[in-house]
């Protein structure tokens, strides 16, 4: 259906339909973010032997995040006097918009997807890089030294970890022969890429945690060092935008990991009677759980160690992986 719409001639009707679909997706994502945050807090609570939220909305605090968001929306919106006003206002938007844009390229199931692009993977990585511009802008526009340091760290980190991230998936692209995410999933019908590309998976996982600015790579907002890093001056819904983009990225990155390495919506053998959407949700939740687990366990890296690790360990490993993959592929195709 979407494919047809995309190819139809432009008009008011399909503009309306697109807007409607976008709003729909936005609400799905917001729903995820709401309960993603809740589940993160609950899982963290479980791992840290405490209860976690349990007041607003019954035993499971099902309305806790809703209340939090409401609070953020009605909070006073403060803008420092000496801040660069236009940039300060636009920075959260720059940070959030790409987070939402990348979702368009992700095939959640064979039916539930928006744009089936030939270069879906490249699109994802390219667009997600824009968020860093928003973060650096926020750091600069706040006119706060901590924010500036956080912004600089974010830029440095993005540059260092985008490369291993891209390099790690090149192996998959080689095996599939396509950048189209649908085709990548299709290629995993029999065997998932996590089995064929375990090294790539580990590099990808580490780099993606760094891309998400989560512990142990949460240097841009390192609370104990930079207070809150780039968003130290933000409050209310502007701050919420940053948080939102962070969690939307978590959503997107977990989806991408599922698509690239865990076979997307494909079921395990003999379990095909379970619907594709459930399979996707299960694998996706597993990745989210892993991300939370990492967050609870590790201390933070230092900036220079982060760079060293990115350039001296991850990148060479990713390159070696590409080389070996190419070699093996050639060898197997010979016979």
């Amino acid at each position: 259906m979407i494919q047809e719409l995309l190819q139809s001639s432009p008009g008011l009707l399909n503009l309306g339909i697109f807007s409607l679909l976008a709003v729909l997706l936005l609400f799905v994502v917001l729903g995820f973010v709401t309960y993603g945050i809740l589940s993160e807090r609950k899982v963290m609570g479980f791992m840290q032997m405490r209860i976690g939220p349990n007041q607003v909305g019954g035993r499971w605090a099902l309305l806790q995040t809703v209340a939090d968001v409401l609070k953020l929306l009605i909070k006073e919106d403060t803008i420092p006097k000496v801040a660069d006003r236009p940039l300060y206002i636009i920075a959260p938007v720059i940070a959030f918009a790409p987070a939402f844009m990348v979702l368009a390229a992700l095939p959640f199931t064979d039916k539930f997807q928006f744009a089936d692009m030939g270069i879906g993977l490249l699109y994802y990585i390219a667009v997600s890089g824009i968020t860093t511009v928003g973060i650096v802008t926020a750091g600069w526009a706040s006119n706060n030294k901590y924010a500036l340091l956080g912004g600089m760290r974010a830029a440095a980190q993005m540059i260092s970890y985008e490369i291993p991230l891209v390099m790690s998936v090149v192996g998959i692209v080689l095996l599939t022969g396509s950048l189209n995410l649908n085709e990548i999933v299709e290629a995993q019908k029999n065997i998932w890429y996590i089995v064929l590309q375990p090294v790539a998976f580990i590099v990808f996982l580490i780099a993606s945690v760094a891309e998400l600015n989560r512990v142990p790579f949460d240097l841009p907002e390192a609370e104990s060092e930079l207070v809150a890093g780039y968003h130290v001056e933000y409050s209310g819904f502007r701050w919420a935008m940053f948080m939102l983009s962070e969690y939307v990225y978590m959503f997107a990155m977990a989806s991408l990991t599922t698509i690239l390495f865990l076979g997307g919506w494909h079921p395990l053998p003999f379990l095909g009677f379970i619907p594709a959407a459930v399979w996707f949700a299960l694998k996706f939740s597993l990745v989210i759980y892993l991300l939370i687990w990492i967050r609870v366990t590790f201390p933070r890296l230092r900036a220079d160690q982060l760079m060293e690790f990115g350039w001296k360990v991850l990148l060479p490993v990713a390159l070696a992986n590409i080389f070996v993959t190419a070699l093996l592929k050639e060898l197997f195709s010979m016979f």
Partner: peptide, 16 residues
């Protein structure tokens, strides 16, 4: 100290 270094959980274990 571990909270300073960025690990959140040990703090809660220690306080228990």
């Amino acid at each position: 100290y571990l909270l300073d270094i960025g690990a959140t959980s040990p703090f809660l274990y220690a306080f228990r």
